[in-house]
Design a protein around this nucleic acid. Structure first.
Lengths: 216, 216
DNA sequence: CAGCATCCGCTTTGATACTG
DNA sequence: CAGTATCAAAGCGGATGCTG
C-alpha cells in the first residue's frame, strides 16, 4: 500500500511517483471528462480495470490531493468522486498525452473497446468554433454506442451524452472514421467514402472542423 | 515481452500502452535532456533502474518508433541511443509532467537522489532571457555534484555540464533552494537566507529569473 | 569495460467471488 | 451500489554471469 517511489529529486519523477502506476492517469482522464462520478460509472468508463485496483487507485489519488470523495446528501445518497483543483491541473498532461497518441488511432483496432464519451478528447483537442458569432448549433453524433451531442455556443464547444429531437446536423459512422474527420486527417468527402454519414448543412460541420490538417 | 495494452480505443490509453510502464517516461526525459547517449550514461542518469529493465525498455521504445539505436562509427565504437522525431514530440508531455510536479519539489527530500543535469527541466520551464539584446552571459552553477553552466545567448537559454575559468556569475546552494529560486518561489534575498550563494552582478541573475511568481 | 541476459524473491496486477 | 477478499500470474528490483 506504501506507494513505490523512483527516489529521484526531479519534478517528472515526483509526478510519476503519484501518477505513474497502471490505470492512474486513465482514472484522471475519466474524471476530467465526466466530472463528479460514481464508483460504478467510473468502472464502466474504464473497461478492463479490476475493481480492487480502482478502489486502491482512488484512495491513492485522494491521499495525493488529486481526487476528492464527497458523500452526496440524500436523496442521492451515494459517494461521488471528483478532481480537486490540483487534479484539474492535470488537464494539460492528459491533453498532451492525447495529442501524442492521436496518430496511433490511425491503425484500425478491432481488439480495443470504444466508448463514445471518449470523443470528448478529440473534440477538445481539435474542434473549434470558427464562426462564434453565428447562432448556436447542436449536432447529433452516433457511433453505435451511447448517442452524443456536440454543441457550439458562445464560441465554446461542448460534448455530452444525449439526444435531441431535431438536431441541426447528424453525424454517424465508425469511430475510426469519425476520429480521422475530427482530427483533420480526412476531409468530409474522404470520410464519406469511408462510410461516414452526415446529414445537415455542410457549413455547420465545416464551422467546427480543423481548417488545416493537424501536423504529424 | 508482449507489451500489455489497456485495450481502449482512446488516444490517452494508446499513449500509455507505449509509455505507461515503469521507467519508460524517465528514460525519455533522460534522452531529451542528454541527446544521444550511451547505455551506461543512461544508467547513471537513472539511479535505481535495474539494468535488464533499461535494456527491455529501450527495445520497446525502439519498437514503438520513439528511440533509435545507432552504432557509432569508429573510433567511438559504441551504441548510441537517441530520440527519433516522433520521440522528440514527447517534449510537451515531459514538460507538462514537470510543471505539474514542480510544487512537489517544495518538501525537503533527503531520501531522493539528485543529479545536477536534472536542473535542465526547471531551466527550460521557468527561465527566460528578459534582455535578449544584451551581451551573452555564462553562469556557473554548483549544487555539489557535477558543475553546470547556464548560458544565455541570442535570446536562448541553455544548460550543460561544464566549468569555465571566468564565469559572469556563480551560483551555488542546496538543490531545493536553487529550485525554489529558479521556479520563482523565492526571490534572491529569500534564497540567500536559505543558504544560497551568488557572486556576480545581480542584474545578470534577474535577467533570467521569472519575474512573476509561478502560479500554483 | 560496455551492453546486455538470466535467475530469483518479492510486489503488483487481474480475474473472480463475496459482502454490507 | 460500492466496494473488500482471495489467489494465480505477471512484472519488478537486485544480483550475478556472459560476451565482444
Amino acid at each position: 500500500m506504501l506507494v513505490r517511489s523512483y527516489g529521484q529529486y526531479c519534478a517528472v519523477a515526483k509526478s510519476l511517483d503519484l501518477l505513474g502506476e497502471r490505470w492512474t492517469l486513465l482514472i484522471v482522464r475519466e474524471l476530467l471528462l465526466r466530472g463528479p462520478s460514481r464508483y460504478t460509472d467510473l468502472r464502466k468508463g474504464l473497461p478492463g480495470i479490476a475493481t480492487n485496483l480502482l478502489a486502491e487507485r482512488l484512495r491513492e489519488l485522494e491521499d495525493a490531493g488529486v481526487v476528492r470523495r464527497e458523500e452526496a446528501p440524500p436523496p442521492i445518497a451515494t459517494t461521488l468522486y471528483s478532481l480537486t483543483p490540483r487534479g484539474e491541473e492535470l488537464r494539460p498532461v492528459i491533453y498532451e498525452l492525447g495529442r501524442w497518441g492521436a496518430p496511433l488511432m490511425r491503425d484500425p483496432d478491432a481488439e480495443s473497446a470504444f466508448q463514445s464519451h471518449w470523443l470528448w478528447l478529440p473534440v477538445e483537442l481539435f474542434l473549434a468554433d470558427h464562426a462564434p458569432g453565428e447562432p448556436s448549433i447542436v449536432m447529433q453524433v452516433d457511433t453505435g454506442g451511447e448517442p452524443m451531442l456536440i454543441e457550439a455556443a458562445d464560441g465554446e464547444i461542448r460534448i455530452r451524452p444525449g439526444r435531441v429531437e431535431r438536431p441541426d446536423a447528424t453525424l454517424s459512422g465508425a469511430p475510426q472514421t469519425l476520429l480521422a474527420l475530427l482530427s483533420g486527417r480526412l476531409n468530409i468527402a474522404q470520410a464519406r467514402r469511408q462510410g461516414l454519414q452526415y446529414r445537415g448543412d455542410q457549413h455547420i460541420l465545416e464551422r467546427l472542423l480543423p481548417t488545416e490538417p493537424v501536423p504529424a
